[in-house]
Nucleic acid binder design. Structure first.
Lengths: 366, 366
DNA sequence: CTGAAAGCGCTTACAG
DNA sequence: CTGAAAGCGCTTACAG
C-alpha cells in the first residue's frame, strides 16, 4: 500500500532554507537557551513545514560518542528469560533507573548457540551493560567484554575489577533448610535450577553436585548443605538432589514426581525457585498428597504468585526489583562518574506461609 | 578504583599499522568472504593486540542508515507497565521476533508528564516502533510519529494508514457476560480498567461510561453491554460499573468492596483483568463470601496466575504472547519490505474454571 | 582479492 | 546571540 517516503531532509536543508548556520538549527533542538525564542520557533516551524523529523539520533550518537541507552543481556534467549517470573520485575528495576537517568533500555537475549547472539551484542548501541546470570566462561561474555564498556554483573560469576550484585543465596537457602529442620524433617528432596551449560534433568550424583557452575544454583545448594551438615544428618544419606533443565512448573512437577518416588522418601522439598515449588504443589494436589501435613515445600524468590496459591508458599524472599534498580544505579554511576563502584550483596528473608509444617504430622506421602 | 581507559583506536589505526586500506579492515569484520582467510586472521589479531573493540556501532549505524533495533513504547512509566502480568509476555513475544530477525529491543516508557519521555523517544536509535495502548491524542504519540518511522499499534486507537493489532475485546467480554447470564445472574458489577487520561477511581455514571477512551476498556465495556442489552435486563438498572486507577490486586479489592456494598447487590463481577479479578477473590475470602456459591467472578486475560488460585479463575483468554509476536512480525515486515501490512484482530476464548457458578446457589453475599 | 574516495548527519568548541 | 569549520568512525559502490 503506502510506500515509505525517503526523506533526506537534514539540518543543513533547513539551515539553508532559513539562511542560518547548521549549528543554530542544532541549538534550536538541543540548547534552546542559545538562541532567541523568535528564531527558535521560526526554525521549528520551517522544520515541520519541510517534514524534518528532528536531528538524526544515529548521527548525534556518533558525534557525541554516547548511545543514550544501556544494554541488558541474558545468556539465554529472551523467550526463556521471560518464563522466569522474577526476571521481568528485575528488568523493571533496571528500567526505572534508566528512565530516571534518561537512558533507554536495550534488551538482548542470548541463544543456544552463542555465536548467534554475538553480532547483536557487538552492534548494540549502548553505553554499558547489565549482565545477568553469566558464567565466567560463557563465550558470549567474551564478546561483550571486548566492547570495553562499563558493566555490572548480576548473579554471575564474579570477575576481577567489575562491580557485581549478588543475592545472599547461600544464607537464604540455609535459613530455608533450617526452617524445615526445626520442624523435624529429616529426609529432603532438593530441586535445583540449571547447573551448567550442559543442561540435564534428573537426580544429581556427588560429582555432578560438585561441578555446579551457575551462581545462584551453586550458592543455594551450598546453603542447604551447610544447614544439613550442621546437624547429625548426613548429606549423602538424607538428601536427594534433582536438577531441572528449565525453570517451569512442568519441571517442578517432574522433579516432585521423581523425588517423592525415590527410595529416600523425603518429607520436605526445597525448591530453588517458586516456579519449581509451585510445580511440586500441583503434583501433590494431583496425587492427593496433603501439603503441609504430608509434605512440606519451601520455594525461593517470593514471586508474586507465591502468596496466591493454596496453600500459600513458604519461601525465601529476594529483593528482585531492588536488585534491578541497584544494577541500574551501579551502571549509571560508572557512566557518569567514570569510577567503578563497590559490589553489593542483597539480603534474603524467609517468609513462612502455609506450605511448610511439622514432619509426620500426617501419614507419610505415598 | 580502575578508571575507564579512553581508547581512540579505530579502523584506520589498524589499517595503517598493517598497511592495508580501511575498507579491508571493515570487510574483515563485516564481509569475511571479501578477503583471504590469512589476511583476515592477521587483521583480527592485530586488532586484539592494539585493543581495538571492533567497528563502532554508532558510526556503522550512521553510515548504514539502520539502527538495528526496534522500539517498544508504552504511554505509562515502565514501572507501571510491568505491574501488568500480561505486559511482560507480550514484550517477550516481540522480543522473540526481534531476536530472530537480528534486531535489538529498545524499551521506552512514558511518564506521567509526557514531556519527560519525549526526548527519550526522539533520540531512540531504532528503525521502527511497536506502540501499545495509545490513545489517539496522546502527546507522546505525536513525538513518536514525527520520527516518521514504521510503526505498529497494539491495542490502541487506530490511525489511518498504520497497521494495528487488536484483540477481540468486545467479543470476549460479550461471551463472558453471556456465560454469567446463562447461569442466571441478573445483577452485575463491572470492574473497569483505566478509562481515560484523567485517572479516577469509583463508580462510573452514564456520562463517564460514554467517555471512555482507552481502547481495551471501551471495547470490553461495550461487549458486556451488548450481552446485557440482548436480554430483558436494563443496563442502567442491573449493572454498576466501577473504574479503577491502576491494574493491581489492591484496586480490584477496593472495587469489590464498593460494588458488593452497593445497593444493587450484584451476584456476579466482571473484571477487565485477571489482576483485578484476583483482588476481588481476596476481598471475598477476607469477608467470608463464598466464590462461586455466593458470588461469581469472571476475569480477563488468562494470566499465568489465573489457573493457580483457589478457586481457579473463570476468565477470557487473550493470546498475549502471540500478540507480541505478531506485532514484531508486522513491524519487521515493514522494515524489510517497505509495505504496510494489514491490521489483525486476535480472537479471545472463554475459559470456564471454578470462580463462576449458578446465581443464588448459596445465600446472597453481604 | 584489495584500496582510494566520498559522505552518512550531526555537535562542539571557538571566534565574532 | 550567531556562524564557519572540523571531525566523530565507519561502509559502500567503484575501479583496479
Amino acid at each position: 500500500m503506502a510506500v515509505k517516503t525517503k526523506d533526506n531532509i537534514t539540518l543543513k536543508d533547513i539551515a539553508k532554507k532559513l539562511g542560518v548556520a547548521a549549528s543554530t538549527v542544532s541549538n534550536a533542538y538541543n540548547r534552546p537557551d542559545q538562541l532567541s525564542e523568535a528564531l527558535r520557533t521560526k526554525i521549528l516551524e520551517t522544520a515541520k513545514e519541510l517534514g524534518y523529523c528532528g536531528p538524526d539520533p544515529m548521527a548525534a550518537n556518533l558525534r557525541r560518542g554516547k548511545a543514550g541507552a544501556i544494554g541488558v543481556v541474558y545468556p539465554h534467549p529472551l523467550s526463556y528469560t521471560f518464563t522466569d517470573p522474577v526476571a521481568a520485575p528485575t528488568i523493571q528495576g533496571i528500567a526505572e533507573e534508566a528512565e530516571r537517568a534518561g537512558y533507554g533500555l536495550l534488551l538482548v537475549g542470548g541463544s543456544e548457540d552463542p555465536l548467534e547472539a554475538a553480532p547483536l551484542v557487538a552492534k548494540a548501541t549502548v553505553d554499558g551493560f547489565v549482565l545477568q546470570n553469566f558464567d565466567k566462561n560463557d563465550s558470549l561474555l567474551e564478546v561483550i567484554l571486548s566492547r570495553n564498556l562499563p558493566v555490572v554483573f548480576v548473579e554471575s560469576q564474579t570477575r576481577e575489577g567489575f562491580p557485581s550484585i549478588t543475592v545472599d543465596d547461600e544464607g537464604g537457602a540455609r535459613v530455608a533448610a533450617n526452617h524445615l529442620l526445626s520442624l523435624g524433617h529429616k529426609r529432603f528432596g532438593i530441586i535445583a535450577l540449571e547447573t551448567t551449560h550442559h543442561v540435564r534433568e534428573g537426580i544429581m550424583d556427588k560429582a555432578r553436585q560438585a561441578g555446579v557452575v551457575h551462581v545462584p544454583t551453586r550458592n543455594r545448594l551450598r546453603g542447604y548443605r551447610r544447614a544439613v551438615d550442621a546437624t547429625k544428618l548426613k548429606w549423602d544419606k538424607n538428601v536427594v538432589v534433582y536438577e531441572t533443565a528449565d525453570n517451569t512448573l512442568g519441571d517442578g512437577y517432574r522433579a516432585a514426581a521423581a523425588l517423592l518416588t525415590h527410595p529416600l522418601r523425603p518429607t520436605a522439598l526445597l525448591a530453588m525457585s517458586d516456579q519449581l515449588a509451585l510445580g511440586t504443589l500441583r503434583y501433590a494436589n494431583d496425587n492427593k498428597i496433603n501439603v503441609p501435613k504430608q509434605l512440606s515445600v519451601v520455594g525461593f524468590d517470593d514471586a508474586p504468585l507465591a502468596s496466591q496459591t493454596t496453600p500459600a508458599l513458604t519461601t525465601v524472599r529476594q529483593p528482585y526489583v531492588e536488585k534491578g534498580r541497584l544494577a541500574g544505579q551501579l551502571l549509571i554511576a560508572q557512566l557518569k562518574e567514570n569510577t567503578v563502584p563497590e559490589s553489593v550483596v542483597l539480603p534474603t528473608e524467609l517468609i513462612v506461609r502455609g506450605s511448610s509444617g511439622k514432619a509426620n504430622s500426617g501419614k507419610p506421602a505415598k
